[in-house]
Amino acid sequence: MISTRITYGNAVYDMARKNPNIFVVDADCISPLNYQKFADEFPGRFIEVGIAEQNMVSVAAGLASCGNTVFVGSFAVFVSMRALDQVRNQVCYNNFDVKVVGTHSGIETGYDGATHEATEDMAIFRAIPNIRILVPSTPIMSYKLTCIAGETYGPFYLRLTKQPSPELYDESEEFCIGGSKVLLEGSDITLMACGRMVHHCLEAAERIKEDGISVRVVDMYSIKPIDTIAIEKAVSDTKNIMTVEDHNIIGGLGGAVCEYVAKLGRGKVITHGINDVFGRSGSCDDLFELHSLNVDGIVNRIKNII
């Protein structure tokens, strides 16, 4: 198994081989973001600014103003908060072709603790005009969404994770901005999840089948724009929607789904995620258990609803 951040690096490298206008500006994340091949093969297009995330984003804006496609990344905490002013005012305000990448998102980051666990990054970026947000759940999806972001003009935020992730898709699977994937059909409740939580939801759905509960699982990989058709379908077909995310229940996937359901004026949403508290150090399994984001926690929440 590999993680979404590794296939991200592969995708950037593969695109750069074909597109001479692709640059990477890095802030000492060569290994976490798998940039070594890129740095070796395209040294002139690999700008290393050291541990200086704000400078990284602004340098990228300067490069993008000259017609380049620029990838910048760091830990999700730092790229979404340390460099937020730069992302907002120099990238998004100008609608420049800069792809902002945050790895080590959520409590899945584990041992490093709260300071390194971004649980508010999606909420922050969702509120900024012009930027789109994609959250891959598997390595193949991460490769493909990176390519979509790289080939589509404008700012993107890609939310990646530290830990290796199982695969759910084959190489021929197609994804799109504003899309989603129904991975399991069901009629009692729709679980809408993103990132690592998609895997937990699939397991939870299989397990709860034994209790006669039929669960639909949707991989909501596009947070902004959100797949409104999938939400409408869930509202029509199942009594409840439960959003599941390794993120604060405020402003992320749950927030996006709730906002659309409120607009529809019908449907019920239960948000399942980090309950507006900071994370802490621990193994990611222990942390998922602590926040009821493991399979047991999700199963119990579903049983409480139904």
């Binding site: 500006v25 700008i47 704000q54 400078n55 602004s58 340098v59 804006a61 300067g62 103003s65 380049n68």
Partner: peptide
């Protein structure tokens, strides 16, 4: 910083 990006280009 943005000017650095332009000069790098």
């Amino acid at each position: 910083s943005a000017a650095v990006g332009m000069a790098l280009n």
